[in-house]
Amino acid sequence: MVDESQTSEPVIAVKSGVELKAQAKDLNFFYGDNRVLKNVNLPVPDRKVTALIGPSGCGKTTLLRCFNRMHDLYPGNRYEGEIRLDALNILSRQVDPIEVRMRVGMVFQRPNPFPKSIYENVAYSLRVRGRIRRSILDEYVEGALTRAALWSEVKDRLQEPAFTLSGGQQQRLCIARALVSEPELLLLDEPTSALDPIATDSIENLLNELKSQVSILIVTHSMQQAARFSDYTAFMYLGKMLEFGNTTNLFAKPTNPKTEDYLSGRVG
């Protein structure tokens, strides 16, 4: 049991001078009457990798899906508080979730390419933005596949169905699909949990290279993964944000006892 009185409000902030791409402020989220996120604060530094860790059911995926308003797809969900993307509060009623999703890309837990060709999978994100010249489309698709480290493997088979690719390649294709529209923020929900170690390694290398171009917020169940390549780490527990900090510091000397328990394998 968590004794509320003993858990002092954690300080969730970054050092001054770090630019933020996005920031959740006093965010509460409800599935119906069920409050799943409790006064969550999370800074997402610009062009850095921020990892969300915590035991299953702590609300990290729920939090991630607030950043592109995915919860709007299902009835009965409600947000309270703010998420700033630059200066814009994307949870505001005046903001169209589709416009948010055009600025924020997402990659899911299991590779979910569309049942279309490799080319059309990547082109999709541009096609939904309106008519576009074929030559420009070709250029963007090649660019996105290159950044997703997939181009050399698929350049001769762009018209083949995406399902002919291996699991790791499919996930990189999904990353290319998210990158092609040049998002400012890329959300990844345990992107390697369905992949083998080699495919996982290639995705991690890829994300490492991407962070110079795009801010990344990644949910991971693997502490090693968070330690390996994230710049910042946030630890969530039972719907609360317990600790946030520079990854090296957080892993070396966590300030919250819960974080320490989790990192040492006593919880979760």
């Binding site: 890309g105 997402m106 979910n112 999709y124 699909r177």
Partner: peptide, 9 residues
Amino acid sequence: LREAAHASG
């Protein structure tokens, strides 16, 4: 697949 499409805007 629907979620992927929605997430693409």
